[in-house]
Design a protein around this nucleic acid. Structure first.
Lengths: 332, 332
DNA sequence: TTGTAGGCGTTATCAT
DNA sequence: ATGATAACGCCTACAA
């Protein structure tokens, strides 16, 4: 049909200059006389010319695109991080390619590979776990990578996190005031470093308060509302009277599940959740929560990545952001 | 440093064939002898060769990438749509580039332009409004575009929606049984077609039930929990005893705001919200809701887009998905 | 079945 | 300040 693809050549011809000059005005190169610059811009406008980013990417080896690997974009925790990432990215003129990993190690490897094949300038990786396969994948690419909300126990990769061990410790301590049997609800992969940190903080707090650790009080679940609901029975029959939960949606499910079973919150059961995402305010009672700087977790990671991509010197590859605690109705 | 970029030439040399042959095995072209195919694959594996998608994109004029324009990825409604889009996209081997538009017409135009410059093969557009600027932008590109959850009153662009007019009509009728003064809470741009449809359905229902329309009962707000909270006072003092709300997060805010003011739900005030996203179950009482097939709205749009990109014949450019109603505690 | 050569639309390096 | 002219890494007729 119509082959109306208009290129830099068309602009050059129409403006009576060489394509090199057109390229210069597009790239804001100073070495262009103001007069010719104006003319070129006029032609660009008139022809509705739009530079082909793919061709630029091939020639310059830069795509101004960063990949973001996310377990589940519809989870409020990750959505908040994504927002922080996106804002900073667009501030620095980067476009974002988002890829869902579904918390699946194989899919993580796969999406990372397609992202790399698309020549992204950098990568932000969000996940719970950092599997060996993905680590090896990361190790053999020169593309800068930053972890956000994902701990790397080998401490090889740049990362932005909070101190999960400490935060979980504090939450457990808070519950230990009124409870003897405190449950810990973790994500799908307890072995995940993130989970290990939380478990460690939990256990420390228990022993400091003379409480014994029992595996029957540690629960593993997928990160979703439904799974939280389902968990209510099991948690209840474990004899626990309080719980520290690693994910807000799970916590909401647990809360509503317990209430459905006639459990009074916080009188009969106390809950502290982990992310302080907006949904902690939706419930009745509201959910007391560790307060993570979600947006910042993403934003700082992205900022760090821009420095890496720009080969700037960076003081610390491992950023720990401060956390806080917000008391709501789910604790006494 | 190390210029270890390995290309199709390296593979060709190492395998003792021409680059064309390598290209063929990469692209699963049948015209390759099984033996040479194996050898090439072996070399690809050994060299850890990864095709450069940017170069492929330039040469083939296809990027296997689709752009998705979203007002706010952290809003649960859009997050659900995004999930549907992403699933179908990856099923068809497309990668997704997400761009936040913040519900801002200028930014919409801007992100659409950068998406087009990146040579996406197609575009899924989510928004409330379809501004004239964006429409003109769309009209002068040959890149296929599908609207999802976004009505185009000119009916030019392919789209996937529910019947907002009818759904709002039904919701209003349901409330008219017990209420004389029913509020309607719409998004940031009432003029948005989407909003117009809802308004029409609302007004029809009112008149059918002999209720008079009052502008004082129509509220305009941004789509967020906080704005819903803020709205509670105004809605209360308008004398309304029920409300149809166009966004779940706003509805949750309104609900909690009213409860905070001592209003009993549903005894003193009934609420019906619009999206039936997961958060409608988080609240106490739960929110009765129009039930939109959120995931499908995205999934079907993406599927439609694949057909368009593939130049397949399509029966109907304007898909209307069925909706439903879910009764929860916020209505009598 | 396999190889050769000419693009794809820019950037970037030299000259001029 | 401007213009040729190679790359960039791959696809794709066209030949062989």
């Amino acid at each position: 049909m119509d082959n109306e693809t208009i290129t830099i050549y068309d602009v050059a011809r129409e403006a009576g200059v060489s394509m090199a000059t057109v390229s210069r005005v597009i790239n804001r190169n100073q070495n262009v006389k103001e007069a010719t610059r104006r003319k070129v811009l006029e032609v660009i406008e008139r022809l509705d010319y739009r530079p082909n980013a793919v061709a630029r990417g091939l020639a310059s080896k830069k795509t101004t695109t960063v990949g973001v690997v996310i377990p589940d974009i519809s989870n409020s925790y990750f959505a908040s991080l994504a927002r922080g990432i996106d804002d900073i990215a667009s501030m620095y003129k980067y476009t974002i390619v988002i890829a869902n990993s579904d918390d699946d190690a194989d899919k993580e490897v796969q999406v990372v590979n397609t992202l790399l094949s698309k020549q992204v300038d950098g990568l932000v990786f969000l996940g719970h776990d950092l599997s060996d396969e993905i680590r090896s994948e990361f190790s053999r690419t020169r593309t800068p990578i930053v972890l956000s909300g994902t701990v790397d126990h080998e401490n090889q990769l740049p990362s932005v996190n909070i101190d999960y061990r400490l935060a979980t410790h504090e939450a457990t301590v808070a519950l230990a005031k009124n409870n003897q049997r405190i449950a810990l609800v973790l994500g799908p992969m307890i072995d995940a470093i993130n989970g290990k940190d939380r478990l460690a903080g939990y256990q420390e707090a228990l022993s400091e308060h003379g409480l014994s650790f029992s595996e029957g009080l540690v629960f593993e679940t997928k990160y979703s509302y439904k799974d939280g609901l389902k968990l209510a029975d099991r948690v209840k029959s474990s004899g626990a009277t309080a719980a520290v939960v690693a994910d807000d949606e799970v916590a909401v499910g647990l809360l509503n599940g317990l209430i459905n079973n006639g459990v009074a919150i916080p009188e009969d059961f106390e809950i502290i959740t982990a992310n302080n995402s907006e949904i902690t305010e939706f419930t009745r009672p509201g959910l007391s929560s560790i307060k993570q700087p979600l947006y910042d977790l993403g934003a700082v990671a992205m900022r760090l990545l821009t420095k890496l991509m720009n080969k700037e010197a960076i003081d610390d590859q491992h950023v720990i952001l401060p956390h806080d605690f917000v008391k709501r109705g789910s604790t006494k």
